[in-house]
Amino acid sequence: PPQTPVRTVMNTIQQLIMILNTASDQPSETLITYFNNCTVNPKENILKRVQDIGCIFKEKFAQAVGQGCAEIGSQRFRLGVRLYYRVMESMLKSEEERLAIQNFSKLLNDNTFHKSLLACALEVVMATYSRTTSQHLDPGTDLSFPWILNVLNLKAFDFYKVIESFIKVETNLTREMIKHLERCEHRIMESLAWVSDSPLFDLIKQSKAREAAANLHESTCT
């Protein structure tokens, strides 16, 4: 059948539901094994973080769309958490294959990594459903990107870091959703990463310092 805008949206939702229908709201046995392999087990912090962010997300969602729609916020969050655990597992498998290690203690205890990954999963869910609701809401009820960054108090540059890996390991994302994440990437590169408190500036400073040290070393050798 011809691919109408409505058909495209329905396909994207169906695809998301198909991916997440059988997924769990809790970490899988495989993820638990990764957690147990860590020098410091991150499990309790991960569960608590998900719970805390869930409370904030549901509150902000209800504030934006009205208390009558609070249950929809809970459903969106539940889907986001399923996708978060699913992608985390795929990322760890991919990294295990690449690096031949099973201990990801530092990564799995990194708060920014988890917030970024959960934000990306939630953004996929929110973007999937956003086209089925009104597109002409006032700014106070606009839940499209970068709304999720404000909810999770996350820097755009940190969110940017997970996008490519997310697309790489979640092979069931629709073309529409990949395009959406790519648009988020572009917005971050073009403007959101360049705000005054962005971590990008620290990285540029570090990079310059390394370059200066290397130049000094080179001239000393000469």
């Binding site: 690096l99 530092k106 990564l107 490519e164 697309i167 790489k168 990949i178």
Partner: peptide, 21 residues
């Protein structure tokens, strides 16, 4: 027609991006 998503050329993984040596 939008171009396909361009993955980075370097073999970089999520661990590298969060500075975990």
């Amino acid at each position: 027609e939008v171009l396909e998503y361009q993955f980075g050329l370097e073999e970089e993984g999520i661990r590298d991006l969060f500075d975990c040596d």
